[in-house]
């Protein structure tokens, strides 16, 4: 009850910040607000694209949830998403005459493994030498984003493309579209299934149990005989793996190729999604939809009016601020008591 109230209030305050910013900066605030709130529902195209936006966010949200559940801060999601997608796509481009489904499954596994491997480095460094995983994962991520950019600008650039991007993969590999004319693709079902599985695994599996215990009190876990270092590495690896898959699903569903910087923001927003969902894998789904709604609403509104699409980022940042402000409710209560 109390938690729900906090979550609702968080959203309300953040939206109020957004409405205020729109009202202050737009020359036609009424129009801008109307499109901001209703835009994503105007037609199948906008609606489908909003859902499409949520798909990678669900995966990065799950990725962040799992790491946070083990009290490991994986801040390298951005790089894991990007590099997972690059690795999978490059493999997809070089795999020749194999059945399409096999290629599709293989590249998803590869992106999963690559993302997982990257994050496991930080997990290992933390377990072995207590290197702060928050900073190390971030530094690895910055490094890989630059290397990924260099790959797409150089050796893997499709010279026919007008921008830094790889060649297109065979269109047969790509997920089928399910709501024309929008980009919405069948990857949605895969992602929803993964969310349900992660939910069950965290609650009821042995590893899920070990992750929860390690995350809630690592000394207790170690005292009781859980191999907490291994658990931290595994949690980081699974987190990175889901992030890598997020990039690949986006490529397979929407772009058909990797474009430089296509996944920018997926990781950070995934972290915010996980925090709003309070690490609950099922709640990650509505939280990701809400984030997608904010971005889409701002986009549609800036399309029809002079509103800046950055409004979405400001609202998202406000949510970020408020989301763990545990003292907020008591603070407001005290204020009310003081004023009355």
């Amino acid at each position: 009850m109390r938690k729900t109230l906090i979550s609702l209030m968080t959203v309300a305050i953040a939206l109020a910040v957004g409405v205020l910013a729109i009202a202050l900066t737009s020359s036609s605030p009424r129009e801008a607000l109307k499109y901001f709130f209703t835009g994503p529902f105007l037609n199948a195209y906008f609606f489908g694209n909003m859902i499409t936006r949520a798909i990678p966010l669900i995966l990065t949200g799950l990725a962040a949830s799992i790491a946070f559940s083990a009290s490991a801060f994986n801040l390298g999601l951005e790089g894991q998403v990007y590099f997972g997608a690059i690795a999978g796509t490059l493999l997809g481009l070089t795999m020749g005459s194999v059945p399409v489904w096999l290629t599709c499954v293989t590249i998803m596994i590869v992106s999963f493994a690559v993302g997982g491997g990257i994050a496991a480095i930080s997990g290992y460094l933390k377990a072995k030498w207590k290197v702060n995983e928050l900073i190390s994962s971030l530094l690895v991520s910055y490094t890989l984003i630059n290397i990924g950019d260099a790959l797409l600008e150089g050796p893997f650039r499709d010279p026919r493309a007008g921008l830094a991007a790889s060649s297109y993969m065979d269109s047969a590999i790509r997920f089928p579209r399910i709501l024309m004319p929008s980009n919405l693709h069948a990857g949605l079902f895969l992602v929803l299934a993964i969310a349900v599985f992660v939910f069950l695994a965290i609650r009821f599996s042995r590893l899920g149990y070990e992750i929860r215990i390690t995350g809630s009190n690592i000394s207790f876990g170690a005292y009781a005989g859980i191999h907490v270092r291994k658990v931290v590495i595994l949690a980081m690896a699974i987190s990175g793996a889901l992030a890598g898959l997020a990039g690949m699903v986006d490529v397979l569903g929407v772009h058909g190729r990797v474009i430089r910087g296509f996944s920018s923001g997926y990781g950070w927003n995934g972290i915010a999604v996980a925090l709003i969902a309070r690490r609950n894998p099922i709640l990650v789904i509505p939280a990701a939809l809400f984030f997608a709604f904010l971005t889409s609403g701002a986009e549609v509104s800036s399309f029809f009016t002079d509103m800046s699409p950055e409004i979405a980022r400001i609202i998202q940042a406000s949510i970020f601020y408020l989301v763990t402000a545990e003292g907020l409710l008591t603070f407001l209560k005290k204020r009310r008591e003081a004023t009355s």
């Binding site: 809630s216 009190n217 207790f220 005292y223």
Partner: peptide, 17 residues
Amino acid sequence: ALGTSASASITDNIIVD
């Protein structure tokens, strides 16, 4: 700090070994 995980359930605390 050591003997239990305060946020975990009684069941989760008992089955840890």
